[in-house]
Amino acid sequence: MTDYISNSVVQSLIALQEITWFNPRKVRFDQVQSDLSLQMSDMLDASDRLTRFAPYLAQVFPETSATNGIIESELKAIPAMQHALSDSVNLDISGRLLMKCDNQLPIAGSIKARGGIYEVLLHAERLALGNGLLKNSDDYRIFDSEPFRALFSKHQIVVGSTGNLGLSIGIMSAKLGFDVTVHMSSDAREWKKALLRSKGVNVVEHTADYGVAVEQGRQEAMQKDTAYFIDDEDSTSLFLGYSVAALRLQKQLVEQGIVVDKDHPLFVYLPCGVGGAPGGITFGLKQVFGDHVHCFFAEPTHSPCMVLGMETGLHNGISVQELGIDNQTCADGLAVGRPSAFVGPMDGFAAQWCLYGF
């Protein structure tokens, strides 16, 4: 690690400075698209699966009935914030500033809802198909029945989380009938733990950070053949579930008459913890809009794990704690010390970074 201590970006991270980082290894998307391990077809498959499950979701989660079981949020203009930002930098910000309200996604109330719920549904579908309870042509509302709950009650789902992913995994798994355990890091909010317990979820509290919660969850799942571990650090299923947001955003932009092309580029700012959600969304946006979209990840100055992994090229081989950074932030969902093993190499062609002091 000593080779990187003299690096000016790493020095800024150690000093907890707010910075903007432009990826020096970024290339045109069309130059690497065909070489990626995931493609548009994988994203479309994930979208189709969510569509198959939509009637079931509308039936068991009434809050999704208005969207017919599709987990989606509003895209709205925020002119007051645009004016405030312009005033703060004494510079006119042209174009339109929009907010994708994923903090209001139904069922779990965070950006993690799409990916977390998607992976649970994918696992449930595979079990049902493998046990002869389901055909792809079936009405998926049959998941809301005793034979399915009886099957899932014999299986465990385990996840480690700072809170938001745990909510999506826990609530969805419990609704289906799984025996679900969420390992929560020390910075997870008490109300999130209480909500999970009220849904019948087993919550294991840890005095250490996110990395320990994930590892303990992984170790628990390894003890049982019927246990399925949802790995926030290295899951293509979570990644693809998040990526579906790009297809939904594309539709919303068309509905609002907003063009994205060379002369009308799209800039997207995404909060980043371990990297799964912003990574998946960035992958999806690049598949849809190519190099007409520019994605920026926002991390707390006290938890800059993804930019550290990208700058050094070590990805999950280095943690912020190794640099003496405390990983303490009020943004509990972003309090991650070591980045995803999967996302950094996958999204290295696409993303830039902003670090903020929260």
Rank of each mutant, 00 (worst) to 15 (best):
S340F: 07
E255A: 15
G273H: 08
Q17G: 10
F61E: 01
L196E: 12
Q17E: 15
P339H: 09
D187F: 11
C295I: 06
H183N: 12
R114W: 05
L75Y: 04
A221W: 09
G337I: 09
Q256H: 11
Q219W: 05
T282L: 01
M184K: 02
S47F: 08
V32Y: 05
I281W: 05
A351N: 12
L323M: 12
R218Y: 10
Y228D: 08
S65Q: 15
G309W: 05
C295M: 03
V254Y: 10
A208T: 13
N316V: 01
F229G: 02
P300F: 00
S185K: 14
C272P: 04
M99W: 00
R189V: 06
Q250M: 08
A58T: 01
Y228L: 12
V214I: 15
R149P: 00
N202V: 13
G257A: 07
Q219I: 12
I281Y: 06
T236L: 04
V180R: 14
C295P: 05
F61D: 04
W191E: 11
R141M: 10
A341S: 14
K100Q: 12
H206P: 15
T236C: 00
G163S: 06
G313P: 03
K199E: 14
A350G: 11
I281P: 06
D326K: 09
G309R: 09
V9H: 14
N7A: 09
E190L: 14
Q156V: 06
T282P: 02
I107S: 12
I14N: 07
C272L: 01
P55W: 12
T181Q: 11
T312C: 06
D45N: 02
G257W: 10
K193N: 12
K175P: 03
F358S: 08
G241R: 00
R25I: 03
P271I: 00
L75Q: 08
N202I: 08
S12I: 09
V244W: 01
E146N: 04
A245C: 09
G163N: 10
V260P: 01
K154E: 15
Q287N: 06
G132Y: 02
R96S: 13
C330K: 07
D291E: 02
S185I: 11
E190P: 00
Q39Y: 06
L127N: 02
M184R: 09
D35S: 15
R197P: 02
L323N: 08
H264Y: 13
Y242A: 01
D35Y: 10
F358I: 04
V27H: 07
D291L: 01
D45G: 00
R114G: 03
L253I: 01
L36M: 13
